[in-house]
Amino acid sequence: MYKSFLAVFLLIFAPAAVFSQAVYRAGTLPQFNLNIRISDNLKLNNKLESRQIFSEREEEQQTRNRFRYERADLTMVLTRKLSAANTLGGGYLIRLEEGRFAHRLIQQFNNVTNHEYARIAHRIVTDETFRRDSSVQVRLRYRIGFEKALNGINIDPKEFYAKLNNEYLGIYEDKSADLEIRALLALGYNATDNNRIEMGFEYRVNEFNKSVQSQQYWLAVSWFISI
C-alpha cells in the first residue's frame, strides 16, 4: 500500500521539478469544514478556505519567493439525500481577493458508493461566479474521488486512510473557454466518524488556451467536523 502511495505521489508531483521555467504558484491551502446535520436527509456544509502563496512566477516575469496571502473563501452548501448513495445540493460562496469580493452560486450532485476495498465518489458541479466589472464565469466540474483505509476494509475511528481526487473543470468566461485539471493525493486521519483531518499535495494545471499553461502546487490541509 505504502509503495503504491509513493508511486502515485511521484507520478503526480514529479512535474514540480520543472518549476524554473513554468508559470506557477506554490503555497498552502488550508480548509475548515463544519457540517451541520439539519435533519435526517438535510446537511449544511460551511467551508472556510484560504490560499497563501510562498513562491510564484508569472509570464515573462522573474520568480518571486515571498509570502503573499492570496484569498479567502467562505462557502455554504445545503445538500439533500436523494438515496443512500446520492445527494443534491446548492450553495453560495463569497470570496475576498485583493480587497475585492466575488460571489458564486453552486449547484452539485454527488454519488458515493462503497466497494469491497474502497469508497468511490463522483461529484458534478456547475457554478456561476460574479465579479464587479467582469463577465460572469460559468464552470462545469466533474470530480472522481477514491478513499481507502490503510488498515482493514472500512475507515474506522482512529484509523489512517489514503485519498485520491481527480477533477476536470470546463471554464467559460467572456466568450472564451478553458480547462483546468486537478489532482490531490492525501493522507487522512479519522479521529472519530465526525472529526477527520487530511493532509496532502494538490496539483492544478489550467490556461490550456494560452501558449504556456499555468500550474499550481498546493500543500492542502483539510479539517472536517460534523455536528
Binding site: N33, K43, A84, G89, N154, K163, N194, R196, E198, S226
Partner: peptide
C-alpha cells in the same frame, strides 16, 4: 450505519 462521507462530497 453509514460512514461519514462529508470529505468526499464537499
Amino acid at each position: 450505519v453509514q460512514r461519514n462521507s462529508d470529505n468526499l462530497i464537499y
